[in-house]
Computed example of a mutant assay.
Amino acid sequence: MRIVYWTALVAFVIDQISKFAIVHGLNLIERGVIEVAPPFLTLRMAWNTGINFGLFSDGTNLSRWILIAIALVISVGVLYWVHREKPRRAGLVAAGLLVGGALGNVVDRVLYGAVADFLNMSCCGITNPFAFNVADIAIFIGAATLVLIPAEKGA
């Protein structure tokens, strides 16, 4: 279980440091857009009151707390599953990424009322209108790994 907790902590800390450095340190809140290596990487400030791609983003205080509760329930569920099933190292790391990312976005919702998204990547003539953050990357990699890698038990 230590692998899960350490991975979650590292994902959480990297997410929060990157958000603070970019949103506040580079003042992305006021600047709105910083072109780093266009179109491949642009920092674009976006406050997401919903979930992925702005789904369920009615912006009400009730929906904010519902999304916080859902993220916490999922995190506890993943930790319970890991404790019960004892997956191999890849499953433990994946669970830690998912939990750390979810908690990173929970902190944003508590502090700001929305998740701070700022990474925008486009390529090959396709313009991506959406922004994301390090927590979203951790959640995606963690969830995809848990789904795609067989849940064999560790020793």
Rank of each mutant, 00 (worst) to 15 (best):
M1A: 03
R2C: 01
V4E: 02
V4F: 09
Y5T: 00
A8C: 10
L9E: 10
I17A: 14
S18V: 11
A21R: 03
A21S: 13
H24Y: 12
L28D: 14
L28F: 13
R31L: 12
G32S: 11
V33T: 14
F40K: 04
L41Y: 08
L43V: 10
M45Y: 15
T49G: 00
S57Q: 04
D58K: 01
D58H: 02
G59C: 13
G59M: 14
T60R: 15
T60Y: 15
N61H: 12
I66A: 13
I68C: 02
A69V: 08
A69C: 14
I70T: 03
L72G: 03
V73Y: 07
G77H: 11
V78H: 00
V78P: 02
L79A: 05
L79F: 10
L79S: 03
Y80W: 13
W81P: 03
H83V: 04
H83A: 10
R84G: 03
K86F: 01
K86I: 07
P87F: 07
R88S: 00
R89P: 03
R89L: 08
A90L: 07
G91D: 06
A94H: 02
L97Q: 02
G104I: 00
N105P: 07
V115R: 00
A116F: 07
A116K: 06
D117K: 09
N120I: 08
N128E: 08
P129L: 09
F132N: 00
N133W: 09
I139E: 01
I141W: 02
I141V: 15
A143D: 02
T145V: 07
T145I: 04
L146D: 05
L146V: 07
L148P: 04
